[in-house]
């Protein structure tokens, strides 16, 4: 355990440091990263999303989160994040957290065929407007855009993965313009056939960090909930040796935080 390094980062960020933080390594270059989280039926990767949400809304920073929810309503996230020590309701009032509830928003215009594109276009317009407003408030803050289930966005668009891809590309363009970060969650095991693959491969290609949550090969256990594989592509300014790192470790999800540890280091 590199304890010295750990301590330094702790003071830098004011947050408990973990293997995940270390592997992702965003603490150094302050945002502007694209993170893709992938999970499967057996192991949910939603906790990684919660982690990034808490991290961005930390009281020390002034970052803003735009959260696009397809999977769960606000009450679900509010309750989880409150247990982790972060009050979303308060953050919403403080203009640091914008929650776009897509569970209900796209339901009414499901019938019309033309509305499919309009729904996503309207959503992008909403995001862009919010990002514009937030970035005009102060120069230094990072805006993180989170999507909690890309596959459900595809369902909402009635199967036109091209529209979803377009949407994602538009969103990525905000990265250059406003310096936004992206965290998206998708289910890897859905995409097996060739015509659906672009939706998982293209975001992976554009991502800086890929985090995969998988079950253990040996089956479920009560004290190890699964393993995370973190692929950090590293930025161009990094030294050659440190770029593109793959880390692999186990995790155990608890109500208020997540334990990360290397295989076999748990007694």
């Amino acid at each position: 355990m590199p304890t010295g390094k750990k301590k330094r980062k702790k003071s830098l960020r004011g947050m408990d440091n973990s293997l995940l933080e270390e592997a992702v390594g965003i603490a150094d270059n302050r945002g502007r990263v694209v993170v893709v989280v992938e999970d499967c039926v057996e192991t949910s990767g939603a906790f990684v999303l919660h982690h990034f949400l808490k991290r961005s809304l930390h009281p020390d920073s002034s970052d803003v989160v735009v959260f696009i929810a397809f999977a769960h309503p606000f009450s679900h996230y509010d309750r989880i994040l409150r247990k982790m020590g972060c009050n979303l309701t308060v953050q919403r009032k403080n203009q640091r957290f914008l929650f776009l509830d897509m569970l209900t928003l796209e339901c009414p215009d499901r019938n019309e065929r033309e509305a499919r594109e309009d729904g996503l276009l309207a959503l992008y317009g909403e995001i862009e407007k919010a990002v514009e407003i937030y970035s005009s408030l102060e120069g230094s803050r990072t805006i993180t855009i989170m999507i909690d289930d890309v596959s459900l966005m595809e369902v909402a668009a009635n199967g036109s993965s091209n529209h979803v891809l377009d949407f994602l590309h538009y969103c990525y363009s905000l990265k250059e313009k406003y310096g936004c970060s992206f965290v998206t969650l998708n289910h890897e095991d859905i995409y097996s056939s060739a015509n659906t693959l672009p939706l998982i491969l293209q975001p992976e290609y554009l991502a800086d960090v890929i985090i995969k949550a998988e079950p253990l090969a040996t089956g479920l256990a009560s004290d190890v909930h699964g393993q995370l594989t973190v692929l950090n592509k590293g930025s161009a300014c990094d030294l050659g040796g440190s770029s593109s790192k793959v880390r692999n470790f186990h995790f155990r999800v608890k109500e208020n935080n997540v334990d990360y540890f290397y295989p076999g280091t748990r007694t």
Binding site: S44, F47, H76, R79, I80, K83, S222, H225, V253, E255
Partner: peptide
């Protein structure tokens, strides 16, 4: 039982037997 509903929590339900 392959999955147990996890509403308002992030902790997965680990059953003793499935």
């Amino acid at each position: 039982v392959h999955k147990v509903a996890r509403i308002n929590t992030q902790v997965p339900a680990i059953l003793e037997a499935t």
